[in-house]
């Protein structure tokens, strides 16, 4: 079978996956006595209906995109970086910590923001490196190591919010004291989104695209991902590459956490990662680890998140429905890939 045919076949099967996912959600909607067309239209309008909503979609898109960029590096090296949630969280913790150091100081807020975001990236990288060390030197599968590190990061975060960093006289899960406005990433007048964070996302995407597609390093990483033993025989220092991919992913995750603190919540909250790490894993699988698909699919997922807010307000449906759509989309597209492979083998 030639390339061209193969591609269009792939495409057909992916569309099939999409249709199946939509069908699946439609059936759920019918079962709960809701009008599916109304629900889909509501999600669409909830995400695109006006400029405020579009801006809100981008507020989700930026960290989602950054996190998934990072995950592409680990996936390329054949690693399942489940610890991504913890890496976002630790990034946010580091950002908050550095920012707290400068509260009330006379240092320019621009420098404080830059320093705290760099600290966030460092934090994410450290947490990712821990997962990498556990894998390389401890023989702990990165999935289990990552899960454990996620729990520790959450516990650390809650401990700080409820204890050392709590508001004076208050111990609450609603988070730390909000930072003064000069420490916020500047936003568009009247919107929640910062041009800076969009800029970071685009730069991040370009970097990861060229790193993976256009460099020797990316090629070697791919070799490690395809088969660690043969890569080793080819003379590629395998564990170093794996460690590096963890660190790269951690930098991205830490940056996402830093943006959550400086650009979205302006404080540290218990669920600072907003589940973007796990959502990023889904997106990475959905796009078959190809950076070229990342921006639009992440946008689509972000739009579903924001559009879903309308469901409980207008139709008394649970917002989690959009999560079901996202999850089933991934499942059905993967399923169709499997079906396609079978189909191709028979030929």
């Amino acid at each position: 079978m030639n390339q061209m045919q193969n591609r269009s076949l792939s495409f057909l099967f992916q569309i099939g996956g999409l249709i199946l996912a939509v069908l699946f959600v439609t059936i759920i909607l019918v079962l709960v006595d809701a009008k599916p067309l109304d629900a889909f239209r509501l999600i669409w309008e909830g995400a695109t209906g006006n400029s405020t909503r579009v801006a809100s979609v981008f507020v989700v898109w930026v960290p989602l995109l950054l996190v998934t960029c990072g995950l592409l590096a680990t996936f390329t090296a054949g690693l399942w970086n489940i610890g991504i949630e913890g890496q976002i969280t630790v990034g946010a913790i580091f950002t908050t910590g550095v920012m707290r150091l400068f509260l009330g100081s006379s240092v320019s807020p621009v420098i404080v923001i830059i320093l705290s975001m760099l600290a966030g990236m460092l934090g994410g990288a450290i947490w990712a490196a821990l997962a990498g060390l556990l894998k390389t030197f401890g023989g702990v599968n990165e999935i289990f190591g990552g899960l454990g590190l996620n729990f520790i990061a959450t516990a650390l975060n809650i401990g700080l919010i409820f204890g050392a960093w709590s508001r004076p006289g208050i111990a609450s899960m609603s988070g730390t004291e909000p930072f003064p406005e000069q420490f916020w990433l500047p936003t568009f007048q009247g919107f929640r989104i910062s041009l800076w964070s969009i800029g970071f996302a685009i730069i991040g995407l370009v970097i990861i695209y060229f790193l993976l597609q256009g460099t020797h390093f990316g090629l070697r990483l791919k070799a490690v991902g395809k088969g660690i033993k043969s890569a080793f025989r080819m003379g590629i220092p395998t564990w170093q590459h794996m460690m590096l991919s963890f660190v790269i992913c951690g930098l991205f995750a830490g940056l996402a956490g830093a943006i959550q603190v400086t650009g979205v919540y302006h404080r540290l909250i218990p669920s600072i990662s907003s589940g973007y790490g796990f959502m990023g894993l889904m997106i990475a699988m959905l796009i078959n680890f190809q950076a070229i698909w990342l921006a639009p699919i992440a946008l689509f997922f972000a739009a579903l998140n924001i559009g879903g807010i309308q469901l409980p307000i207008v139709m008394k449906l649970d917002s989690a429905l959009t999560g079901v759509l996202q999850g089933s989309l991934v499942l059905f597209v993967l399923l169709m890939q499997g079906v396609k492979q079978r189909f191709a083998e028979k030929k």
Partner: peptide
Amino acid sequence: VIALLMVMVLVLSACQPAATPAAPAEP
């Protein structure tokens, strides 16, 4: 990618004319 997105748009926007005027969903 573009084609896939267009299909998504079509699927989603196809719902629009189908909405009945009585639907309380009109934001």
